[in-house]
């Protein structure tokens, strides 16, 4: 399978040069690397510009309600563990209306790969501030919304006990491809924060400005060290790469990697 084989026949309606094109491309490349059969692939999203992405993939796709992608993906994955399940969305969908679900998905640790394209703005509704809009950009663009400090999604995910936390940039495709591939391979809940610009509601140079504040983590970064990961998540600059990856532990005989009964999941015993 080639990356284009993971695309549906629909042409994306994103703005020219939108970061979502990069995310779509990196996802299809990672799926090619992993040879996931399309009929075994599920793509779940909420609502927003990025949430259109499942419609552009050759998969069992579900473009659901604003903020609700994770519950839907959780139900699917628990009921159908054989489905490789990716969840995609934007910063408004994930970090505003859907924020509450993220911590529970991380805690529950069902094997989902959650990829959030974060351009720091509500694009679909024409340019309001999102939970990750930085104050100076908000002021510069005159965006609606209070002058609050933005959320730090990577720090939030680390704090929620997520076992795999990574970050990429939509403008660095080879790097994003490897990060997404590793996230999909991780046998439990994984999170990928993808930085991008919005070509319509951010200044054209926004994506570049953000990228200049990114540092690709060195090969020898100790990403099994929570303290090091937390340090990397702090501050004005953005670490790119796998920031935190804890050993998911030996899988249980049923293929799950944690004792689900402690996670609020009671799994069916296969009746032969």
């Amino acid at each position: 399978m080639k990356p284009k084989d993971y695309r549906s026949e629909l042409e994306p309606v994103w703005c020219t040069a939108c970061g979502a094109f990069g995310v779509l491309k990196a996802i299809t490349q990672a799926l090619t690397d992993l040879e996931v059969p399309p009929e075994k692939l599920a793509m779940v999203s909420g609502i927003g510009c990025t949430s259109r992405l499942p419609g552009y993939t050759n998969a069992y796709s579900f473009n659901s309600l604003h903020g609700r992608s994770l519950p839907i993906a959780t139900g699917l994955k628990v009921a159908r563990p054989d489905m490789r399940t990716l969840v995609v969305g934007g910063d408004g969908d994930g970090f505003s209306i859907g924020l509450g679900h993220i911590f529970h998905a991380a805690k529950r640790n069902v094997d989902l790969t959650y990829i959030v394209l974060d351009n720091g703005v509500y694009g679909l509704t024409k340019g309001q501030a999102s939970p990750t809009t930085e104050t100076k950009f908000k002021q510069r663009r005159g965006l609606a919304g209070p002058d609050e400090a933005p959320l730090n999604p990577v720090m939030l995910l680390l704090a929620s006990g997520c076992g795999f936390v990574a970050r990429g940039h939509a403008g660095n495709l080879p790097h994003l491809r490897t990060v997404i591939r590793e996230a999909i391979q991780y046998p439990a809940f994984s999170f990928v924060h993808v930085l991008a610009g919005c070509v319509t509601y951010q200044k054209p140079e926004y994506a570049d400005e953000i990228y200049h504040r990114c540092d690709v983590l060195p090969e020898n970064f100790p990403n099994d060290d929570f303290i090091a990961a937390s340090e990397a998540a702090r501050g004005e600059r953005f670490s790119l790469g796998v920031i935190y990856k804890k050993s998911p532990g030996e899988p249980l005989p049923d293929g799950s990697v944690t004792d689900d009964d402690d996670m609020g999941i009671w799994r069916g015993i296969q009746v032969s």
Binding site: R68, I72, V78, R267
Partner: peptide, 21 residues
């Protein structure tokens, strides 16, 4: 399988996910 959801929005969301499956 049974999941204790974080709220009722999530509960029905999970049901739709499973039923989609």
């Amino acid at each position: 399988s049974v999941v204790q959801a974080e709220d009722e929005i999530s509960a029905l969301g999970m049901v739709l996910g499973a039923s989609f499956g």
